[in-house]
Design a protein around this nucleic acid. Sequence first.
DNA 1: ACTCGAAGTTTACGCGCGTCAAAAAATAAT
DNA 2: ATTATTTTTTGACGCGCGTAAACTTCGAGT
Lengths: 341, 341
Amino acid sequence: MEHRKIQTMEDFASVSGISRPTVSKYFNDPESVRSTTRERIEHALKRYEYTPNIFAVNQNRRLTKNIGVIVPYLADPFFAEMARMIERRCIDAGYWPILFSSHGQRQMEINALETLRSLKPAGALMAPLGRTSDLEEIRKFADDVPTVAFDSNQEIGEAFVGSDNFQSIGLIVDYLCRTGEPPCFFEMPPVNPNAIKRRKAYIEAMERLGHTPEIIHVGGHSWEFELMGLEEGKRLISERKLPSNTVLCSNDRIAIGLLAAAYDQGLRVGRGPGCAMRIAGHDDHPWSRYTCPPLTTVSQDYSAIVERSVEKLFEIMNSGCKAESREETLFEGKLVLRLSA
Amino acid sequence: MEHRKIQTMEDFASVSGISRPTVSKYFNDPESVRSTTRERIEHALKRYEYTPNIFAVNQNRRLTKNIGVIVPYLADPFFAEMARMIERRCIDAGYWPILFSSHGQRQMEINALETLRSLKPAGALMAPLGRTSDLEEIRKFADDVPTVAFDSNQEIGEAFVGSDNFQSIGLIVDYLCRTGEPPCFFEMPPVNPNAIKRRKAYIEAMERLGHTPEIIHVGGHSWEFELMGLEEGKRLISERKLPSNTVLCSNDRIAIGLLAAAYDQGLRVGRGPGCAMRIAGHDDHPWSRYTCPPLTTVSQDYSAIVERSVEKLFEIMNSGCKAESREETLFEGKLVLRLSA
DNA sequence: ACTCGAAGTTTACGCGCGTCAAAAAATAAT
DNA sequence: ATTATTTTTTGACGCGCGTAAACTTCGAGT
């Protein structure tokens, strides 16, 4: 056991008794060398500490093993969780995920793209900011780098994987109408296509059931959804301007704010007797089970979305050519019944 | 406006009429070339698109401009927020932050260190996992790379920046004792030194005030604090085993779980009449203001911690030598009075 | 033992840039 | 105008590895 640190592949090749090009081949694909050779290398790898210089490797490869992961807002545990799962899968597949957060800001998203591009990534998984995204920039990026969009369907990249908002919103509208007063819809700011689709889905579902849709608009393009839910909620409740005592929020984070508003205003939330209002969300956010009362919502199938996105990206990367058409995969949501509605 | 894409510094040098070594100098430090030269380069930079190949640059520099940022658990918005602020500051200082999350797992932390090391970083900012960290590995890393620890003081790196748990816990224990029944302490799992210091601080503060400390132990080393607060809370409340109707939680995430438990058990939380229990937390977590009732807690001075950490790291990086002693900077917390206690 | 394809070795070049020494040019000071 | 100083240019080397060509060895199968 020497465990001497070896710096260059040249040196490592000589101590392991193999030629450098073969060692190089091994590191690019261990299966590409004969099994006896592989064993000798791996044996040497145990005795000496050596990892190829990542910069030298990437300089000479036309394409690296880097995979960019760009999410719009990492402080949202929904994206943090997605990012975690994506990282895991990429690593397992022998790739090197690099995580960027746009932090809700257009310029940060552009920066992330630029930085990423200079990393010559083999592919990218991107949940765009949405409305504030610089679509031109993203498209230019996606022209050069195989890109799969997820979460927010922004007509970007060669594929999209996300949730079927029409199905999921339909599901919960049905439920709410069946069990009480038809819901009004507390809209999230129209930051991305999800926001818009969910509103449309709500309207469709209500009309299908013969009810009049009622929408609470919120402006701006901030990502502080809880704050909006809280402030706008307090105002609506105190001014008695809520169109219905059942409120469907276009995402859980708004619902969390609205729950706080209801508490602040002394309204009891839930579906039991003695409750003044019902609140439902959408996404099954990691914290929705810890609200008071626990939030009734529709789950997004996180792991399915992640799995399919990564899978699809690998397909595209391996096919080596642009797909003829943009494939969109939508997963269905499931009703998560808790106590708030 | 040609905006032709230029690939190599050689090419860029020739179109801008400057020699390559001078251009190289410019990119390493724009101030190091004469102002007239600088202008000519920057003028060319506007006409042609060129960025130095990051891999070639880093291969030849002994030290890169990379700065590693390692947090234990990115799905915790506390760390997400810290990471965001750190990234911002590093970028502004001309560095390149690379974010890693250990996702609560020892092996992931080790991997992050290894990956980071291969990136030849100029420095690292690290919030260690704590108890489950492989301290030996981290120390070996910190021997080679200037490292500042934050959040959790693990005797790692050349400096530490964090919160003064004794001050902050003292503050809220004082407040709770002054305004009602002395608190028991709902401990977080002893995942890191903060957990241990907060417990000790609680005991000291209680004894100083002449009260008997009562501690609720929770085992394990999971990072799902909310779940612990919820499950253990439900058990304690239903079995009437809470030592006090005032509970100080060692962090806000546990408090969030406990609030849910209290709701589940039909206990009204708050400091007003008609309330069955008081709950307080620690950290002023981004969501603590949205709980029902809003959580009374002690804030950590996020931005001060970030600012000082980064500042200190730059100091160490620039000094170029190991510091003789490990500097620890602690910031004081502030009482954040809301409605839960 | 012989053939032949697969795998390994040798040799050599190139990637794009940092960096150094020496020479040339530009600027500042006398 | 001359000297001293700073800055740039020229030319060259090296970083660590990918990769190609030509050659050699290996191992399974008639």
